[in-house]
Design a protein around this nucleic acid. Sequence first.
DNA 1: GTGGTCTAGACCACA
DNA 2: GTGGTCTAGACCACA
Lengths: 122, 122, 122, 122
Amino acid sequence: MISLDTRNHEPIYIQIEKQIIKLIRLGVYEGNTALPSVRAMACELGVNPNTVARTYKSLEAQGIIYTIVGKGVFVSENNENQLKAMAVKQLKKALLEAKNSGIEGQEAINIVNTLWEEKSND
Amino acid sequence: MISLDTRNHEPIYIQIEKQIIKLIRLGVYEGNTALPSVRAMACELGVNPNTVARTYKSLEAQGIIYTIVGKGVFVSENNENQLKAMAVKQLKKALLEAKNSGIEGQEAINIVNTLWEEKSND
Amino acid sequence: MISLDTRNHEPIYIQIEKQIIKLIRLGVYEGNTALPSVRAMACELGVNPNTVARTYKSLEAQGIIYTIVGKGVFVSENNENQLKAMAVKQLKKALLEAKNSGIEGQEAINIVNTLWEEKSND
Amino acid sequence: MISLDTRNHEPIYIQIEKQIIKLIRLGVYEGNTALPSVRAMACELGVNPNTVARTYKSLEAQGIIYTIVGKGVFVSENNENQLKAMAVKQLKKALLEAKNSGIEGQEAINIVNTLWEEKSND
DNA sequence: GTGGTCTAGACCACA
DNA sequence: GTGGTCTAGACCACA
């Protein structure tokens, strides 16, 4: 369910992180259920366990997952609000850049309308 | 006119690039006029000439500036459309991510309205 | 009477250990009376018996409990002084660190006063 | 200036972290001056560069230092307040544990008085 | 078995 | 030269 693009300059551990967040958002990984172990995930993705461990550490630092040493890594409960807040924050940053690039509010709204009319795609 | 934030993890050459683009957009650097030489710009900003050279290379690769060997670096003419298209493309990408993160169109529009009401800030 | 916080990174066996010490201090477990067996305690807490065994081993190494093979695990007599001494030692260590971090004696006393005014909380 | 105790169960990267914080507090490393590079520090301490990198990442996450990729790692300015707040927080936690261990406020104050009378030692 | 730490060392972007 | 990422793999505490 997770695909890596090694040509992409985005670090692998970030690519994994983003896709896990998406999977949590979609409900594939539910609250308090275990994620694949570091080793299992690493094996599945064909990357080094250290790389997955880095992803998990980052997600834990954000409160999205929690680890129990010796038991595994688990999805935090009720992180909907948190994920939403992260998305809003990113959107604001992007919109501010767009504004600074000379895009008018009406243009931005037009783009929003066009994109949200289409069917959702992941 | 260009300010660098060394604490920001955005590479220096990208920070310079973005601000040159903004200055071109604002008309500070006009079509077919010369930009400061690599050395002059580097000296003014207190950075390594290699860094400015990297910025200019990137801008040239995008067609925003052009080099005349032995004479200097010049702003391309009529790159308004191009700069606009770049900004729109970036915005679309960001909005698509927001949509995939579960943000509703109306929410996005509300954020747009809030941000564009405020006074322009750089 | 013992509650575990799996999200806390403090190892489970240490959490159990601290709470047993507190229960002994509070007189819930009295001298020469038996603690629940490893299996009973593990079952009650929903943890692996190995984990409880580790706790008991640690408590025995500190002389707080003793084992009679085939009969069970018992609370040592007269360990008040010992528990007190342990607590004082830990406190001294923490205060020394605080002092080395530049905290003034008066500040420390103020914090003490604030904390001891409040109602005891576990 | 930094000494490691490999027998100590405290991870090396944490030991380094604590000692760098102390050196910053003591003014050995001043604001906006560079720390030894990852490689230099690793060489000096006889540890792997990755270990030092982990320390620096952690310090950066706490805002105590900042890195400029390609240039080095620098001490943040004005982190006195921050370092102080960290120390106070740690002290509060330790005092709360002491209180829960049955230590009386007056005893804690006595220990404070005893320790702060002595000459400061690092 | 599970995550955490650490080594040894490679390659990369950046300044 | 500087930090960032990644691999390969070892050893450890913990459950």
